[in-house]
Design a protein around this nucleic acid. Structure first.
Lengths: 193, 193
DNA sequence: AAGGCTTGTCTGTTATAACAGACGATTGTA
DNA sequence: TACAATCGTCTGTTATAACAGACAAGCCTT
């Protein structure tokens, strides 16, 4: 059964923390016997107990099950689009729009001092921004939010938003646009199907 | 309790797929009564049950567990505590799974010499990899493909694949999984043995 | 050795997750 | 109106997750 991985993860986390079953029971509020059964794979814990474990170890719930989620494998390389310029920023298409997923990803580059304002998109469109290098500020809900390298921010794009680079070094950020299923249907009604 | 997320996500996923409780029971192997109790929050499902749901819907376990940001704004700061995954790589969730888009995004970190292999996932699942820093090699069709900083690769994830860092510096890469919505429907017909 | 204190394991008991099936309410069709 | 086929809800029953506590084996002190 796939549940093995849960057992392994729990044991690994516990041993990594250098805790005994009793200590773990004290820490998480899950009985010692239950911990033992989970590690042995004799019982499949409920999410409630999983949550106790996560909280006790100060780990995200996914820490115990994330490996179950790992995808894998084959690939068809994506073509690299040439860099294009708009008025105020440079961008490159990393992953082109795919109607199956309803998303597209760009890599934007902002020189120091540059800013770019984007008009509101259709309702339901969501934007993911992840700062690859440098520091940028993202405008949404009427205020500028500072985002450093490694920060990720998701927001509704059906309102005015924009980006600017307040620093002294070039900044790069990922930009993924999600177009909800409902929008796709309305947009492509009578075309695809 | 935090278990609400499970209930909400399950109901959202089910309704998104346009399935009734009976159809979902048929699809996932979880009884109709139990589905109802889970959605109502009257019972805390077992991971075994959660796994049935995930397999039935061809979705990751995180689809039911991660915060359901029904397209609300999220901010994932870079300083967020990374989740350690075994001995082979470190990652953190940048954008959690959202049933509206059917995708989730992680940020993986590979130390020099580290490698990670993944098991095949459901057909139709597509993975986007974008190298943020350093150099990695991606295993595909039995051969390792070198990917430098700024390279983006999209590939189908229904075959074994893996990542490794052959360089002498740490490497970071984005990892977005797309779970096609069509799977939800196709799975309901003819999937049962 | 003896004692005290751990470790992980194994009981018996309780709480509840999971099941099969019945039930009224609703919808569509003849 | 009557009938059939759904829907989600609500029973009673079974399976098992979760608990408290006992147990032997190992590890230090003295």
């Amino acid at each position: 059964m796939k549940d093995e991985k849960i057992r392994i993860n729990l044991k690994a986390v516990r041993q990594k923390a250098g805790l005994s079953l009793a200590q773990t029971a004290e820490l998480t509020g899950v009985s010692k016997a239950m911990l033992h059964q989970i590690e042995r794979g004799d019982s499949s814990p409920t999410i409630a107990t999983l949550w106790k474990l996560a909280k006790g170890f100060h780990l995200p719930l996914t820490a115990f099950i994330e490996d179950l989620v790992q995808t894998t494998d084959t690939f068809a390389p994506a073509e690299k689009e040439p860099t294009r310029f708009r008025e105020s920023l440079t961008f490159r298409t990393v992953f082109p729009f795919d109607p199956l997923f309803g998303s597209e990803t760009f890599l934007h580059t902002l020189e120091p001092g540059q800013s770019h304002a984007s008009d509101p998109h259709d309702t339901g469109v969501v934007e993911d921004v992840f700062v690859v290098a440098g520091t940028i500020e993202v405008l949404h809900d009427g205020e500028w939010k500072a985002c450093q390298q490694g920060d990720g921010i998701r927001f509704r794009a059906d309102q005015p938003h924009g980006y600017r680079n307040p620093g002294s070094n070039p900044a790069q950020f990922h930009n993924t646009m999600h177009y909800p299923k409902t929008n796709l249907y309305q947009a492509s009604k009578g075309k695809n199907e």
